[in-house]
Design a protein around this nucleic acid. Structure first.
Lengths: 207, 207
DNA sequence: ACTTGACTAATACGATCGTATGATTTTATA
DNA sequence: TATAAAATCATACGATCGTATTAGTCAAGT
């Protein structure tokens, strides 16, 4: 195995953390290089520019996530089960990559068009999810309604829980890193989504 | 009625839009003052500093929203109905204040403690919502589970739809400002939350 | 041993940042 | 209309920004 602590590695890791914590504009090259114990010019040298480093960090976070989820969407099985698994998977992924939720929020909060790479990933992911939901609707698993809207509802849950770690920690004297706590929250999110999307047998729930 | 176009008003409005679009750090005093057709020193003169202007914008957006929702939480009636109404109200509020969702995302994405004012509002709102959910659980309206987690699930929906306007516009050749479209999305979000939180009569939905 | 290429280091540069300053203009009050 | 207060203005200042420049270090390749 290569030495895992080259200057490039340190820059990349520190940049990911700082961009996540403070955003692109509020994170200076000097902040990153000094924390990474590298020279001021190191980012320009190794990555070309601050902007290029940011893009690289961004893609390195978003791409594997999107690919994982798209793969999950395309597996066989009842649509509702797949969506439950998808939410759980998404949740786990966000939890294993604590910087990712903040990046996703930053992306969502952005004004103007997404960077090309991200837009393409987003389209593929949305297409896969919408396709899955529509299949569920055809097969009678999932309640009727505009599939894109349902897709937004699905995605909203794990993103928010990945984010709400601070909130969860505040609330319930629970450690948001405790795997047991993670599992509880995960099961909860998955169950809420499943139930929200399902077709309820009787008309027990008025509109 | 006072003239609605003083320098202070223009600064405030432009600042709100630009902070929402680009964030605090990426929005310069010069950007705001020039767009507001005011002098460079106008922000310092009228608000004290850029930071003070930002805080003022933030509070002016978040406070009325929180108060509206807290009032909604404390009204009588079946808890599930109240939550459905709450989501609808929240959605409408976000839609009437298009800058608000981005601010909320920026707040959520922030690292470190919230500003005092916001933390207090958040606590009050969460308390009201959790209380409402717990009441619903006692009264048999709402499924069991940790109320704070359910509260996060509830809040996630309207925030995401307020945000996903861009996504919705991309997807379905719908105009996200068309009141009819708004109403459809709103009803959808409200219904999803209601169904997700409800107690399902039979065990039709496996965990 | 010498050269070459990859990397690190120190510093400088121009641009832009938020704010301060003092003059000038506008507005309001007497 | 005279005068005080409020607001606007042009400009300057020091700090910090991202990047360029140039020199120095070090390990392979020959």
């Amino acid at each position: 195995m290569k030495t895992p602590d080259t200057t490039v590695d340190r820059l990349f890791l520190v940049a990911r953390r700082r961009f996540a914590e403070r955003g692109y504009a509020a994170t200076s090259v000097r902040d990153i290089t000094s924390r990474a114990k590298a020279n001021l010019g190191a980012i320009t040298y190794h990555f070309g520019s601050k902007e290029a480093l940011y893009q690289q960090v961004l893609v390195s976070l978003v791409e594997p996530m999107a690919n994982t989820l798209i793969r999950e969407c395309n597996q066989p099985g009842p649509a509702l089960d797949r969506i439950g698994a998808l939410v759980a998977q998404y949740y786990r992924h966000l939890h294993q990559n604590p910087d990712l939720p903040r990046f996703m929020l930053q992306i969502l909060a952005e004004h103007g068009p997404l960077p090309r790479v991200l837009a393409e990933l987003q389209n593929r992911l949305r297409g896969a999810l919408v396709g899955l939901i529509e299949r569920g609707q055809r097969e009678g698993d999932i309640r009727p309604g505009p599939a894109p809207l349902l897709a937004v509802s699905v995605i909203a849950q794990p993103i928010f829980f990945g984010l709400a770690r601070r909130v969860v920690a505040q609330i319930g004297r629970m450690d948001p890193d405790d795997p047991a706590v993670v599992e509880v929250a995960l099961r909860h999110a998955s169950a809420i989504v499943r139930q929200g999307l399902a077709i309820i047998p009787q008309g027990g729930i008025p509109a």
